[in-house]
Design a protein around this nucleic acid. Structure first.
Lengths: 354, 354
DNA sequence: GCGGCGAATCGAATCGATTCGATCGATTCG
DNA sequence: CGAATCGATCGAATCGATTCGATTCGCCGC
């Protein structure tokens, strides 16, 4: 005769059972496990022995998180499909920076994707804080929920929002700096290859309307930066930060009647694609076409090119986000963080010939 | 006079408060939110209105997970640092497969790294199931805890363990098949470039002792597979699945006195590195050196080479793992899954000249 | 010998929701 | 017209641990 349920599964032991077997109260047993309080060695030993004999694995994290009001989990929301997000080394570097900080603080990272309206509701998970990565401001609704729950929200490169802690990058300024580099080289006919402007990842030309309506902060800022120097620069929107998207965009721009002498790509992957498209079309880089990237990814397989690009501190962005999350969790008031990108001149930009 | 705490933070509302304001019982309010029970429309509306006026964000996930015994979180344990794991497209594909399945089941993915003994304890997070990815069996201790907690454990390519649901790949057979391909091409002097054999990621020669002592299942199986065909094949252990590690390993093997005519690399990244090392040394591939990879990653920047490799279904491995997790969660008894890799012949293997 | 002190332990309240069984009306069927 | 039924709602128990205040006991000092 056992107390097993009819399905044959023995009831999982809880702290009370352990305490009972050890002949102490549940509170003492709790103290014995957490070590937060005066417990005699003898008692602790009894409790641990009882736990072992009951096959008790230690306090249930679910109950702990309810009681303590903390789950030890930090949400990281990516606005892409993982397979897409992971293809860009910048995202990986960012995640790595986040993971580093969180890991050493004993926190775990919950990876969520912002699939838009369709998918499962974000915010149904027990998170202590949330880091939004390149997320569209369409997250308004979720952000509201987080705020109501008192969950700190950190946003990496997003539109400023109240109660959202920003980790910024000088996307506009940096792009403008890069553009001025092109200008100083004599380029007049410059085109842009942009990151997606909408959640739909639609390709197509860059138009003022589209830019204005876009919820993609980074892409828009970089377009603005380019336009700060080349107000009339045309461009195309890619469907993602991939090499082959750069190829597609590059072909579009380079096969056009009025071929640009320089292209500002919003990521190194896109820039690599543009270069490949130029190669295909027999256009020399940097002789006939200068290409500017963004990120400083040091891509493999781009040899002999050394991309001229804006080097951003991606890992640092991540660790800053992680640190901010931890600080906010502890009730601190950290200072907003803004990072700067540096122009690194390689061999993909040169004087304009035309 | 308010009931605010002295720190000025208003108390966060709970379901009871909402119910009180709505003039119903907590149980009814719960029903109104979950929709799992007969609630009149009028009552539901009252409850929702009360929630809104109290700024209530909905049931607390922490409390839900305690009561329901489910947190909606699946742990994914990677045995590497993220920055390393993410560099291999296979891992990304795997994660993507997992994320796909979990996402459509409304589950979230908790990314954990197995930092060994040092880091924060795995298993302190509220997970419903856990997927071990390429994890060393040093996880014994954690697996014990999971078992005690009744948390299903799925292991991708790991040593068989009781109560651990396996997702397998034919690492040994597939490698042997690849090796036989080399044999059929007349190669006699074949060397191996292995994935790390220890958690320390130490480089060095492959020795029987090291192989036997290794806890790295995949690497060991692939060595065994190579030895099934070439029992005496020597080799070196790399420090990770990276191109530059392949370069290092390739140099070591190709600068040796008795240079091999074929190299079996345990990943496409390593193979790419080997090819690069051969190029550096002026050794023609496949003329003077055949190179076999593993994964089928279709790496960029390897042109004009088309790697001869063993194509594994990485995304499918991931979705199988995700599905298994879901099935086990629901108390099902899914069949263990074993995947097969296919030899894809490219232009990096050719007849031996010697 | 007694008051007081500190270490160890205990009881009870609490975290916030879910859920089962009971209750209460109102409607409908025989 | 009484009874059976169904829908809506409520009470209370429960999930598993933490934690605060109170209590007990032994020991020291005066």
């Amino acid at each position: 005769m056992s107390t097993e349920a009819s399905d044959g599964t023995p009831p999982r032991p809880n702290l009370a059972a352990v305490a009972a077997l050890a002949g102490v109260s549940a509170s003492t047993a709790s103290l014995a496990f957490s070590g937060a309080g005066p417990v005699s060695d003898a008692t602790r030993a009894k409790v641990l022995a009882a736990a072992e004999s009951l096959n008790y694995a230690g306090p249930d994290p679910r109950a702990q998180s309810l009681r303590r009001g903390r789950s030890g989990i930090i949400g990281v929301v990516i606005d892409d499909r993982l397979r897409d997000a992971f293809r860009d080394p910048m995202n990986i570097a960012l995640l790595d920076g986040i993971a580093d900080e969180l890991g050493s603080a004993g926190l775990a990272m919950l990876l969520l994707t912002d699939t838009g309206e369709g998918g499962s509701d974000i915010s149904l998970a027990p998170m202590d804080a949330v880091i939004l990565v390149g997320c569209s401001t369409e997250l308004d609704r979720s952000v509201t929920v987080f705020r109501q729950r008192g969950i700190p929200v950190i946003a990496v490169e997003a539109e400023a929002m109240p109660d959202v802690f920003p980790i910024d990058l000088d996307n506009r300024d940096a792009t403008a700096r890069g553009a001025r580099h092109l200008k100083s080289l004599g380029h007049k006919n410059v085109a842009i290859v942009s990151l997606p402007l909408e959640g739909s990842h639609a390709r197509g030309p860059i138009t003022p309307e589209r830019t204005a309506a876009s919820s993609a902060h980074t892409a828009r800022q970089r377009i603005l930066g380019a336009h700060d120097v080349y107000p009339d620069a045309p461009g195309v929107v890619s469907a993602g930060s991939f090499v082959e998207e750069g190829v597609i965009a590059g072909r579009t721009l380079l096969e056009a009647a009025d071929r640009p002498t320089a292209i500002i790509a919003q990521s190194d992957l896109l820039a690599a694609g543009v270069i490949r498209a130029a190669e295909e079309l027999g256009i020399a880089v940097p002789g006939e076409l200068s290409v500017l990237g963004f990120d400083g990814a040091r891509l493999e397989g781009l040899a002999p090119y050394e991309l001229t690009t804006l080097v951003q501190p991606a890992v640092e962005k991540g660790s800053a986000a992680g640190r901010a999350a931890i600080a906010l969790l502890e009730g601190g008031h950290p200072e907003p963080v803004a990072f700067r990108s540096e122009l690194r001149i390689g061999n993909t930009t040169a004087h304009s010939n035309s």
